[in-house]
Every structure is written in structure tokens, then in C-alpha cells.
Amino acid sequence: MCDICGCHTPDPEQTTRTVDVHRSLLEANTRQAEENRRHFAAMGAVAVNMISSPGAGKTTLLEHTIDILAGEMRIGVIEGDIETERDADRIRAKGIPAVQLTTGGACHLDAPMVHKGLHQLQHDSGSDSFDVIFIENVGNLVCPATFDLGEHQRIVLVSVPEGSDKPAKYPRAFISSQAFLITKTDLLPYFDFSLDEARKEAAALNPGLKILELSVKNGSSLDGWINYLRQLAKK
């Protein structure tokens, strides 16, 4: 660059030059995620990003959570799927505002999508104020772990039929989460799922991880999860 006038005429003496950059290639997502986090906070909401394989029971757990907590806190849900409105419809059937984001093929949500969902949620519900907003990510234990959505808490779920080796096989999801839910524990007698293995391997990856076991078939097993959400909503 010309030092005198600042124009972009290249220096004829210097044909190649090396520029140090050190900028994240996920910078655009990270910037939007920070903005989302401020947006959630301004609404008074704690944002919870739920990550799991397809079929681990994210939507079913949300339905049961809503049954218990809808009377004491304002809940909103942003659903991520490749196709269909089905999950949002299940949440709306409970009388809770829900926005469905369909990615049309992408295997994860990103911060710009969630930003759009957030505005849609405010528009559809006519409310700017929530206590908890759940973001149910696209069913996938891999890519969702790479994308910050601006959530305050990240929860990873593994159901008993999937096997207790999941923390060791998909480490990033467990390293980047604050809580790990082992779901469908009513099926433990029928599967070779080792609670000890799952707990130990998850704790080895992330010693601060809160680990809870639950089954929606057994209401009292949800107590730990419900108390965890109450604590979060209070903050």
C-alpha cells in the first residue's frame, strides 16, 4: 500500500508479502452468537442448547418439562430439524410458543439461524420476555458441537439404547457442554449400557460436567433436571 496517500497501488519493489492474520474462520458465527447471548439476556431468558443423536428423546423430554414447569416459568422453544414442523407442533400443542427452523439439509443450527428464530419467536408469541428458551438442535452429536448459538447452557443427551461409549466416541459434544443427561433409563434392564462407563468417560473429558440420569416414564427421576432448570432460571 502507498504510505503517502493510502491508496492500494502495490509497491513495485515488493512482489510478494506475508500478512499475519490470526482470525478465526468461524468469526462470523461467533460474532452473531455473542449478539444472540445479549439478546437472550435482554429478554430475561436463559438459553439452553440441547444436543443429541436423533431419537435420544429431546422433544419428549421438553414435553414433560413443559408439563411440570409451564405454570411457574415462561418457556419458549426454537426447534431445529432438517425437514417438517412436527417438533414445533408437538410443543405448540402444549400451549407453548415454538418456532421451527428447517435447515433444508444442514446437520446443525448456526448462530444466524437462531437469531432469525429468536425474532420469529418474539413475533409469534407477542412477548419479549421469557425465563427459559430451549433451542433443540438438529439430531447429531458431531457438528452442533462446533457452533456456538449464543446459548448460556449446553446440554448433551444420550439415551440408553445408543450405548455408553458415546462420550468417548464424540468427545467434543461432552467437552463443550455443561450438563449430560442419560435418558430412557427405564430401558437399562434390557440393554448393556454401563452407567459407570458413561459417567467415568464423560467426567474424564470434562470434570465439571453435571451428569443426570432420567426417564420420562418415571416422574420422580426428572426432579434433578427440573431443579437444575429452576436454578438456571433464577440466575
Partner: peptide, 8 residues
Amino acid sequence: LVLTQVEM
């Protein structure tokens, strides 16, 4: 995932 250096 960082862009560290570019030669041009």
C-alpha cells in the same frame, strides 16, 4: 479453526 497467515 484459525486463518494464521496469508502470502500474496
